[in-house]
């Protein structure tokens, strides 16, 4: 005897019913939780930017953000200016930190104008220029914030990833890797943009030489490392004219 659940009509009805139930449930949850999620993401961006310029609660060897409660206040305190470079034109924009780098990269690809956010922070009398970067790792997106001084020397870096391999590529957000970038030069000795290469077989594993434009790679995470190299080269290069100008002015 045919079971009730084998009938075609039942199957179709069940499928339609399930699509509606699941669709409605997810859509409801997604829209109900969206404000909270966006708020969390907003705070995280502030924490990331602050982390890159050295405002953090680092303990021992682990990277710790400032707490979410403090983040907005500290952000206002340390970040003096939020700039957007659009077609070479520099504008002030207090929502610059909300600019979606992924969308801007897609705009650039489609031939549209790419808006480049840049944050100017001040801490202990020193000025930091913090730029967001974004690229691809082995599995999915990787991104980060790099704090520079006027000479494009790295003052701090924060990297994050969506789904790199735990224990390997995921280690780009570990302090031992991020701290290696501090002090590295983005320019070569002639002042041309060179970037920083995440290099295997680095002759300088303790990272004493800061002008070799190289940091030591993570063992077993070659492709993620190449992704970091590429996003630094591609995205930070766009800020070169801004820094050249800054220099000419002085």
């Amino acid at each position: 005897m045919e079971k009730r659940t084998d009938k075609n009509s039942y199957t179709i009805l069940f499928a339609i019913g399930m699509v509606f139930v699941v669709g409605a449930l997810l859509a409801y949850l997604a829209s109900a939780l969206k404000p909270r999620i966006t708020e969390n993401q907003r705070l995280e961006k502030q924490q990331n930017i602050l982390y890159a310029m050295g405002v953090n609660n680092n303990e021992g060897t682990s990277a710790v953000f400032v707490s979410t409660e403090e983040a907005p206040e500290l952000f206002d305190q340390y970040i003096k200016q939020q700039l957007v470079i659009e077609n070479g034109e520099v504008k002030q924009d207090t929502t610059a930190y909300l600019i979606d780098v992924k969308k801007q990269q897609a705009n650039a690809k489609a031939g549209k104008v790419r808006r480049l956010p840049l944050f100017v922070g001040e801490k202990d009398g020193k000025t930091f220029y913090i730029a967001p970067i974004r690229g691809k790792g082995l599995w999915d997106a990787i991104w980060g914030y790099v704090a520079l001084d006027e000479n494009m020397i790295v003052q701090g870096a924060y990297f994050d990833h969506k789904g790199e391999t735990p224990g390997l590529g995921a280690n780009i957000k570990q302090r031992f890797f991020m701290d290696d970038f501090i002090g590295e030069h983005l320019l070569n000795d002639k002042g041309a943009f060179k970037g920083i290469v995440v290099a295997k077989g680095n002759a300088d594993p303790k990272n004493v030489n800061k002008t070799d434009n190289e940091v030591d790679a993570i063992a077993g995470a070659t492709i993620t490392g190449d992704g970091v190299t590429a996003m630094i080269r591609k995205d930070l290069k766009l800020y070169l004219p801004y820094f050249q100008n800054l220099k000419n002015k002085q």
Partner: peptide
């Protein structure tokens, strides 16, 4: 669960759970 589409149903149940 209709036996013909049980795999789709199973996949959707687990995916929904995880996404929630």
């Amino acid at each position: 669960i209709p036996s013909k589409i049980r795999i789709i149903v199973q996949l959707i149940v687990v995916a929904t759970l995880v996404i929630i």
